[in-house]
Simulated assay, not measured.
Amino acid sequence: MTSFLVKCAGKDNNEYLKQQVQVKNPYLETMEEDILYHFSLGTKTHNLPEMFGDIKFVCVGGSANRMKAFAQFIHQELKMTGNPEEIRDICEGTDRYCMYKVGPVLSVSHGMGVPSISIMLHELIKLLHHAHCRDVVLFRLGTSGGIGLAPGTVVVTEKAVDHSFRPQFEQVVLGKVVTRSTELDEGVAAELLQCSSELQNIPTVIGNTMCTHDFYEGQGRLDGALCSFSPEEKQEYLRKAYEAGVRNIEMESTVFAAMCRVCCLKAAVVCVTLLNRFEGDQISSPHDVLVEYQQRPQVLVSHFIKKRLGQI
């Protein structure tokens, strides 16, 4: 398959990578000031090129605590100067998201679900554009429910799919449904898979990821406050998902993939599975085991970043 970057930019990848991060809104350039409200940043109140112009990698995840921990982890991995415990939250003026900068790496929380990550991505992509960033790779790091995989397996997403296993995201704009493709960059996925082969104890597969709009009914769980289907119907749906190439389920991947694709950004979704949904609905692994699982996407992406920076 031809890389989507070629399709997006209409030119070869090397030429594309010389360009800054793109936005797809002609009205931004006419604005006197662009206020990134949910980041508590703005084009007049902050020097965004000076603050963020050297960013090459952006890692986003749902939990504020987890993204702070990742920032401290990558600080140590890149052997940065200073105390990682003293990294400052750039978005401390708001309680909506957190943001930490460690050299060329930006670590940002996005909350839970499509609406929350969508808001964050609009402002993040604008921030990268205003800062004149170039050749940026975005990663979504997260947890998920596996389908036919052992707990602890890392899934690098090939396509983010909806409830009907279609690689698309439907956005309602002015009352009309706009459908966007959710294929992710093959080159980055292959590079991540290669990185996993160089690490120990991080089993990794490439597969499709199903994105749902909730944690319980939308994911076929039997343990929510509401349940209108039988265990047999649940298993049949999961079986169909597996046959469609789905290997895990989470709640943000389709809009992440769609928005990055529209803006011609290389991106990857890297989520660890906390359980095999064929075997149950509730996460029952011990806390220390879950903590180690949750670190696996961070370790894998850190290895990718260090290789790109020539530190391995």
Results as ranks from 00 to 15, higher is better:
M1N: 10
F4V: 02
K11V: 12
N14T: 09
E15F: 04
E15G: 05
Y16D: 00
Y16G: 01
Y16N: 01
L17M: 15
L17T: 04
V21K: 01
V23Q: 06
P26Y: 13
P26F: 14
P26E: 13
E29I: 10
E32L: 12
E33W: 02
E33T: 09
L36I: 09
H38W: 10
F39N: 05
G42A: 12
T45M: 11
T45Y: 06
N47E: 14
P49N: 09
P49S: 11
E50F: 05
E50T: 03
M51R: 06
M51C: 03
I55A: 02
I55R: 02
C59Y: 02
A64T: 03
A64L: 03
N65W: 07
F70P: 01
Q76T: 14
E77F: 03
P84F: 06
E86R: 13
E86W: 07
E86L: 15
I87L: 15
C98P: 00
M99P: 02
M99S: 11
Y100T: 05
G103N: 06
P104H: 10
S107I: 05
S107N: 15
V114Y: 05
P115D: 11
S116R: 09
S118N: 14
I119A: 12
L121F: 10
H122E: 09
L128A: 06
H129C: 14
H130C: 13
V137D: 03
G145N: 01
G146Q: 07
A150G: 12
G152S: 13
E158D: 09
H163F: 08
F169R: 03
F169A: 09
G175H: 08
V177E: 07
V177F: 01
V178P: 00
S181K: 11
E183N: 14
E186R: 09
E186W: 05
G187A: 09
G187R: 10
V188L: 07
E191G: 03
L193F: 05
Q194P: 00
C195P: 02
C195A: 13
S196N: 04
S196E: 05
L199S: 09
I202L: 14
T204H: 12
V205R: 06
V205M: 08
I206W: 06
G207E: 08
M210E: 04
M210N: 05
H213L: 14
Y216V: 06
E217F: 06
Q219Y: 03
G220T: 00
D223P: 01
D223R: 03
D223A: 07
G224A: 11
C227I: 02
S228R: 12
S230E: 02
K234R: 15
Y237D: 00
K240W: 04
K240D: 08
V246T: 10
F256L: 13
A257F: 09
A257V: 11
V262Q: 09
C263I: 02
K266S: 07
C271P: 04
V272M: 02
L274C: 10
L275T: 04
F278W: 05
E279R: 04
E279H: 06
G280K: 07
D281M: 09
I283D: 07
S284L: 15
D288N: 12
L290Y: 08
V291F: 08
E292K: 14
Q294A: 15
V299R: 14
S302L: 13
F304V: 07
F304P: 00
K306N: 12
K307Y: 03
L309P: 00
I312R: 05
